[in-house]
């Protein structure tokens, strides 16, 4: 089974509290933040590797990121993917979800054909959850997102459960499919030392705008139907009064606070 996994390098979600907006320029300051594989993408990769173990085939990583993100793709190869395709071009910068999906869909077609495209349902940074559906539309594949369970048979039949509010929806269809994976689906494996060694010899292809044969006006900020305006850092700061004393005294103060808020009668 030929499987593409869309991988997005994101700033480590554990460090989002350090992100600032430069007051002078209004631009996001994300320097010094570690880059990691988008957490849900690891679950997509795990699902792909399990399918490959069952049915054979290959697992290719595809993503759009600056060239410096190659290390993150190397990590995906260490986890077990066979090769990586990194779409990297200054023209791709500032893309919204649709302009990003155009690049990804083109790369999937060029690197393919693939029977299955898996990705995390949501990215930790932008978090729109648009990409699985939009890549599916641009490829002309049926697609589902928020996938929490799936069964795919070698002859291409698929039964997929997608999470909904307090429940799930189960659908049946045939490959090719694009599926947006949630963390409930599986537990990603650890990187093994053998994987790290093997990754050093696996191919990472870097593709530019020209390599993909895309129109400059359809990608990046220029090709994005949504355009960004001002950035804000929401001011959620409150007075932060420190309650001091032994636990019992603190508890008495807290009961007082509850009472004045109309709780506890």
């Amino acid at each position: 089974m030929e499987i593409a996994v869309l991988l997005k390098p994101v700033p480590d979600p554990a460090q989002y509290d350090k992100i600032q907006i430069d007051p002078a320029t209004g631009i996001l300051v994300r320097k010094g933040l570690k880059t990691v594989i988008n957490p849900e993408d690891k679950h997509a990769l795990e699902a792909a590797l399990q399918l490959k173990e069952q049915h054979g085939g290959r697992v290719a990583l595809i993503g759009m990121a600056p060239a410096s993100a190659v290390e993150t793709f190397r990590e995906g190869l260490a986890i077990g993917a066979d090769e990586a395709f990194l779409c990297s071009d200054r023209a791709f910068a500032g893309a919204d979800s649709l302009a990003t999906s155009r690049v990804l869909a083109k790369a999937i077609n060029k690197a393919g054909p693939f029977a299955l495209v898996l990705c995390g349902s949501t990215s930790a940074d932008g978090g729109t959850a648009h990409v699985p559906s939009q890549v599916g539309e641009l490829l002309g594949f049926a697609h589902l997102t928020h996938v929490i369970q799936m069964e795919i048979s070698p002859d291409g039949r698929a039964t997929v459960r997608a999470k909904m509010e307090n429940g799930y929806r189960e659908s049946r269809g045939r490959l090719p499919l694009v599926l947006g994976i949630r963390r409930e689906l599986n537990t990603p494996r650890y990187i093994s030392l053998m994987g790290i060694m093997a990754a050093q010899g696996k191919p990472v292809h870097v593709w530019s705008l020209n390599d993909l044969g895309l129109d400059k006006g359809k990608v990046g900020l220029a090709g994005s139907p949504t355009q960004p305006g001002k950035l804000y850092q929401p001011d959620m700061k409150r007075k932060g009064e420190v309650l001091q004393g032994e636990a019992r005294e603190v508890a008495q103060r807290l009961v007082g606070i509850f009472r004045s808020a109309g709780i506890l009668g």
């Binding site: 290390e71 190397r74 650890y190 990187i191 093994s192 030392l193 790290i196 990754a199 050093q200």
Partner: peptide, 15 residues
Amino acid sequence: TEAQEMLRKAVREFV
């Protein structure tokens, strides 16, 4: 090396 840094990260996650 890059591979050693990746190893450190992988071991840290496991630990």
